[in-house]
Amino acid sequence: MTAKIAYDEVEVGTELPARTFPVTRATLVRYAGASGDFNPIHWNEKFAVEVGLPDVIAHGMFTMAEAIRVVTDWAGDPAAVVEYGVRFTKPVVVPNDDTGALIEVAAKVAAKLDDGLVRVDLTATSAGQKVLGMSRAVVRLA
């Protein structure tokens, strides 16, 4: 494990570079295939509406995968992430058009722990709604 960020260089409140991740219907089809999650709420509008959703929604695990990229890109080595947890608070609704939806992710160092570890708190929003809650990673820095 070779993180490129040094523990001594970060403070509580240090912000990680924020990112915006686009997601379209095509993204979801591709993620369904790669992850093996073929639940039709992620690709079939008729089915999604029938079960009470406003439209097709992104896989929660897709949003979780995108959000942690803010941390892995910052740390350099993805193995720097030793813990990662989220709560799925609202769905990311993905309309059937060329632009789809955007997932906006911000993160900052919330605590410096022992042994070169820091806790990073993430926020993820889409269409102004908070889509992840209690989103935290523990990261081992150099």
Partner: peptide
């Protein structure tokens, strides 16, 4: 599928440079 171009996931040499014996998988 998640759009992540981190070479640790696809390039064995890049993964080895980080100290891993082979390519690693994204956290999720």
């Amino acid at each position: 599928a998640i759009g992540d171009a981190n070479p640790a996931y696809t390039d064995t040499e890049a993964a080895k440079a980080l100290g891993h014996p082979d390519v690693i998988a994204p956290p999720t």
